[in-house]
Design a protein around this nucleic acid. Structure first.
Lengths: 153, 153
DNA sequence: TTAAGTGCAAAATCTTTGCAAATGT
DNA sequence: ACATTTGCAAAGATTTTGCACTTAA
């Protein structure tokens, strides 16, 4: 995860012709600070100084512009994360894996996976996809291995 | 899709120690009749004779028992479909692809895909996953091909 | 008969909309 | 100055809860 400075966020907003307001910068820095997707409830928790409705509007504006993307976790809760560079206005390329750790509950965005090995049955034309997985992330997996004094992989 | 008779649904409910009530049998026959997942709003539409709350309760009971599974589409709406045989109480093996046709809006459950070609980064331990894809289903894809007088695949 | 399931009313959440005040450019 | 964005209030939608009535076993 590359460290992103305030200046970068301002540039990002400028590029999308969005005004550089305090709430927007806060949302950006929150999301960019994590390599995991953040749930809307979690965002609300941290952003308790900004209005709930404002948050809804900021998130949907960012999503429309292709700045962030939304993924629903297995509970149907919206989670948000910064888009990789190739997302644009009204068009997302979210062909990466969202990995939901069952232990620490984090949602990791794993880009750069080769997902093209997936063969659809004849006749289906793939446009895009979202892969949502559950399991243990490296940190938690290590913790478990220790307890079991057993290591796979 | 194997044709399922009323008797089968009754047996299914019995097996899970659920009473064979009219609303439950109706939900089962609705879901089993389609090889696509049905959205909660759609179910409500067809089941307009049974109470909305009852539907919620039936669906969550079925899900708990491993009779049906829930998948959230790209709008965050819950969609339901019959589970394949290997789901059990409080444990789902939904390792299949949910294919959402952008044209007819159907959500297809594609089992029997080899999804094991997906390599996770080191340290991640896969438990299960949900793959949600968008594109054109064979029917719609054919229709489009006709219009374009062009055929791929 | 009686435990489980349903339906209705009402509460609790979540999400959207309208509009006046505040803010960035 | 002016178009955007925010915050508040309120409407709409979705989901959950409580409880009396009904039904399957």
């Amino acid at each position: 995860m590359t460290k992103t400075a305030l200046k970068d966020f301002e540039a990002l907003l400028e590029r999308h012709r969005l005004k550089k307001t305090a709430p927007r910068l806060k949302v950006l820095s929150m999301l960019a600070a994590k390599n995991v997707a953040t749930s809307q409830p979690d965002l609300e928790g941290v952003m308790n100084d900004i209005d709930r409705v404002t948050l809804y509007r900021i998130l949907s504006a960012f999503e429309e512009k292709g700045i962030i993307h939304k993924v629903f976790d297995l509970n149907g809760t919206a989670n948000y994360a910064m888009c990789s560079s190739n997302c644009g206005e009204n068009h997302h390329h979210d062909e990466h894996l969202h990995f939901n750790c069952t232990s620490c509950k984090n949602v990791y965005c794993l880009d750069d996976l080769d997902l093209h090995g997936i063969d659809l049955p004849n006749g289906f034309k793939l446009d895009g996809f979202t892969l949502y997985a559950t399991g243990l992330c490296p940190k938690c997996s290590k913790a478990v291995s220790k307890n079991n004094s057993k290591q796979f992989n």
